[in-house]
């Protein structure tokens, strides 16, 4: 039997069908400096040019033999399209991701425009997906969106949003309803572009910031609406502390859960059982950028697999400045150590 393509491997996994080995990919940023250097471009340029955005994702995936890829690379595009501006740090030395400089400072100021999908860099992202659909037929193509609460924190000041959760609960609920619709519309839009899977990153909602009770009343209902609206494979990703909310994350209805290194994965697997896909959960910066020994890297990846993930995902975007040998060890270890079945996915 011919070897599965990366796309086949990933899509079969999402259907809980047997595959030859664990897929190695991420639904978050996985662009690396080695790919950017090979393209003879700069990190600041790959966010605002469709060819460079698609090229950076594809060159990285091919360079490291990944089974899938995901764009865009930054979380500012939607807020920018809503008129909140963007700082691209063209002149800054090194790698700095785009940010939003002019967030709304008051709930009463918020006015989400109806035409944001055609503004700012949104058309560039659409074009990059078109390019990837043509140039990367053998790879799983992922889109990612911010969850409603995290998107809310991108378009309005986070401390106002957090305090509003207690002081202006009705207004905040209405606002979160609005941004939930934006997240749903973004997911439906990416679906219409033909992406293979969507990761919803509600990264600002872990229990480092919010209580489990608040998560249940203000985050879970909106995330459930988002996953109800998605008809392709979906991933519910939250970084930071998730142990106290992991069952509620599961109840939101995504096909897979993704968590970072703060999660007690053995306990999570015990709580959720072996049917749900779980991705995670290594520290990308601490593992791929700073570790001095590839043996240590291999141990981290093996632990993720032993703890019960179905795909070894970094807990966040891969920090682009990875060590070549660490990245190679990550992928090689998944390929070899991931030959054995994972809790939710058998092997051919």
């Amino acid at each position: 039997m011919a070897e599965l393509t990366g796309k086949e491997r990933v899509m079969k996994m999402f259907k809980n069908e047997p595959i030859d080995r664990m897929p190695c990919f991420s639904g978050q940023g996985a662009v690396t400096v080695q790919a950017i250097e090979k393209m003879e471009t700069q990190f600041a340029k790959i966010h605002k040019d469709a060819d460079l955005m698609a090229g950076a994702a594809l060159t990285s995936a091919k360079m490291w033999d990944l089974d899938g890829l995901a764009i865009p690379f930054d979380m500012a595009a939607v807020a920018e399209a809503m008129g909140r501006g963007v700082s691209l740090y063209d002149a800054a030395e090194g790698i700095i991701y785009p940010t939003v400089p002019n967030k709304w400072k008051d709930l009463d100021e918020i006015d989400i425009p109806g035409d944001y999908m055609s503004k700012g860099r949104m058309p560039i992202i659409d074009k990059a997906f078109d390019i990837l659909k043509k140039d990367a037929p053998d790879l799983a193509i992922g889109a990612w969106v911010l969850g409603p609460f995290t998107l809310g924190g991108q378009i309005m000041e986070l401390d106002i949003l957090l305090k509003g959760l207690k002081k202006k609960k009705d207004q905040i609920e209405e606002f979160l309803g609005q941004v939930t619709q934006v997240t749903v519309d973004m997911c439906k839009h990416y679906e219409s572009l033909g992406v293979d899977f969507i990761t919803v990153r509600e990264m600002g909602s872990g229990t480092d910031l919010l209580s489990p009770r608040m998560w249940k009343t203000l985050i879970q209902p909106n995330l459930t609406k988002v996953f109800d609206a998605i008809s392709i494979p979906s991933v519910n990703h939250i970084c930071g502390s998730t142990d106290m909310i992991i069952e509620m994350m599961h109840e939101c209805g995504a096909d897979a859960i993704s968590v970072d290194q703060k999660n007690d994965l053995v306990e999570t697997r015990n709580k959720l059982g072996n049917d749900i896909l779980i991705f995670g959960n290594f520290d990308p910066y601490g593992t791929l950028t700073t570790m001095e020994s590839t043996a240590e890297v291999a141990d981290v990846i093996k632990k993720c697999i032993d703890d019960g993930v179905d795909s070894v995902w970094p807990g966040c975007d891969i920090w682009p400045d990875v060590k070549k040998e660490n990245m190679e060890t990550y992928v090689q270890t998944v390929h070899e150590y991931g030959l054995k079945p994972s809790p939710a996915v058998k092997r051919i």
Partner: peptide, 8 residues
Amino acid sequence: YFVPEVLM
């Protein structure tokens, strides 16, 4: 208490 309460 969580961060919203602490901020207030």
